[in-house]
Design a protein around this nucleic acid. Structure first.
Lengths: 225, 225
DNA sequence: CACATAGGCTATCGATCTATAGCTTTACGC
DNA sequence: GCGTAAAGCTATAGATCGATAGCCTATGTG
C-alpha cells in the first residue's frame, strides 16, 4: 500500500476531486485532508504531487483559462461578422468548459484570484474579460448588436457561464452541445439589433466553429488514457 | 473604551462588514476575527451580538431571501400578462438587491446552504427558484415567451443577478434603477416570442411596479437613521 | 445615587489546518 | 537482481480558528 511508481493517477484524481470540493465548499472551505481523503491517500501525500494548496488551484485555473484565451483569440481573428464570431465563440467556449473533466464552479467564486501566488491567473482572467469586451464592442460598432453597455454584456456572459457549469454539477454534462447552443442563442437574442437574423447567424456560426475544430483534433485526458 | 449601551451600531456594522468579507473571501475564508477587526472590536465581542459564525450568515441570507420571496409572490399574483409580470419582477428584484446595504455576492457561492444550521434558508432559496420557474412557465404556456427550457431561464436569471451584484462591488450601486431595467430588458429580449413587444411591456411593467411600490413605502436602515 | 444590563475586554481551550521531516515500500531501468 | 526514485506512510511543529469563561465599564432608569 505504498509507492506505486510514477503513473500520475493520484495526481490526476486529486485535480478532479479538488475541483469538486472547491465547487462544493469553496477553496478556503476545503482542506488538504479533504482532498487527500477523497483520493484515498493520507494528507501529507498531497504534498508529493503539489507544492502547496494554492498550487493545485493555480493548475485548475490554468486548465480553464489557457484554452479559453486561445478560443477568444481565435474568435477575434476569424473572418466573419462580429455577431457570427460572438455566437461561435460562446458556442465553442461553453461546450469546451462543459467537457472539462474538472468542476470549474468554485474556481472564480471568492476573490481567490487576489492571492499573491495567483497573479498570473488573475492577469489571464483580466485578458479574457478584455478580449470578450472587444468582441462585443466590434458587434456594437458594426451595428449588428444593439447599443448596449459592453460591460453589462460581459458580466451577463460571465454569469451565464458560471451558472451553466454550476447547474451541470460535478459530472461532465450529458449534453454539452445543446447547452452551449442555448447559451449562444440566449445572448444573441438579447443583443442582436435584428433578432430575425439569428437563424442565419447560427448557420454561419456552425460553419465557422466546425472549421476551428478540424485543424486541432487534439487528444485529451492527461495520465489515464 | 467599553460598554456603550444598547445602540446596536456594532451589530449593524458587523452585518455589513461580514457581507463584504464573505463576498471577498467566502464564508469559510472569513474568520470571526476578520469580522471583529473590520468593525473595530476584539474577536470575542462578536459573540455578544451573534450566537455563532453561522448565525450572522443566516441573518444576511434572510435579509435577502425574505423580501425576495415577497416580491416573487406579488409578481405571481399580479393582474397582468406573464411577460409583463416577469419584467416587473426582475426590475423590482434587481433594484431592491442593489439597494441593500449588504454585499450579497458571497452568500450563495459555496454550497454553504447545506450547513445544518441553514436548512430554513435552503428551503426559502428552493421556494424562490420554484416560484420563478412557475412565472416563466406561465409565460411559455401563454405563448408570450418562446419554448425555451424553463430551468435554463431560471439559471440564466440567477447568473445575471449574481453577476450584477458582483459587479457593483461593496458599495451600494450608483444607478440601481438603470441596471435593474437592463437586466429585465436583457432577459425579455432573449425570451420574448415577439421582441417588438418589448416597449409596450416596459410601459406596462413600469405601471405595475409603481403600483407595488405605492402601498408599502417602508423606511429602511435598522439602527443608524 | 444605586444598580441592572449592554457591550466591551483579556485569557485561554481544544480542534483543525498547512506544511515539513524522515522512514518505508513498490516499480522500473540497467 | 540491484539500486534509484516515485509515492506512500507516521509523527509533529506552528499557526489559526470558533467558542467560552470571567471580568470591567459606561449608560440609562428609578
Amino acid at each position: 500500500m505504498a509507492g506505486r511508481g510514477p503513473d500520475g493517477v493520484t495526481r490526476h484524481r486529486a485535480l478532479i476531486e479538488a475541483s469538486r470540493l472547491f465547487a462544493a465548499r469553496g477553496f478556503h472551505g476545503t482542506s488538504t485532508r479533504d482532498i487527500a481523503e477523497a483520493v484515498g491517500v493520507r494528507q501529507p501525500t498531497f504534498y508529493r504531487h503539489f507544492a502547496s494548496k494554492t498550487a493545485i488551484l493555480a493548475e485548475l485555473l490554468d486548465a480553464d483559462l489557457l484554452p479559453a484565451l486561445k478560443r477568444i483569440r481565435t474568435a477575434l481573428a476569424a473572418e466573419a461578422g462580429p455577431a457570427v464570431r460572438l455566437h461561435a465563440y460562446l458556442h465553442t467556449d461553453v461546450a469546451a468548459i462543459l467537457r472539462l473533466p474538472y468542476d470549474v464552479r468554485g474556481l472564480y467564486n471568492d476573490d481567490v484570484l487576489e492571492l499573491p501566488d495567483l497573479t498570473d491567473q488573475a492577469t489571464r482572467r483580466e485578458q479574457m474579460h478584455h478580449l470578450t469586451t472587444t468582441l462585443v464592442d466590434q458587434g456594437i460598432a458594426s451595428g449588428e448588436l444593439i447599443a448596449i453597455e459592453t460591460d453589462f454584456v460581459q458580466h451577463a456572459i460571465t454569469g451565464l457561464l458560471l451558472e451553466v457549469v454550476r447547474e451541470r454539477g460535478a459530472a461532465p454534462s450529458p449534453a454539452p452541445e445543446k447547452r452551449a447552443l442555448e447559451v449562444a442563442d440566449f445572448v444573441l437574442r438579447a443583443t442582436l439589433a435584428d433578432p430575425t437574423r439569428l437563424p442565419d447567424i447560427r448557420q454561419e456560426s456552425a460553419n465557422l466553429s466546425s472549421r476551428w475544430n478540424q485543424p486541432t483534433a487534439a487528444p485529451l485526458s492527461p495520465g489515464v488514457s
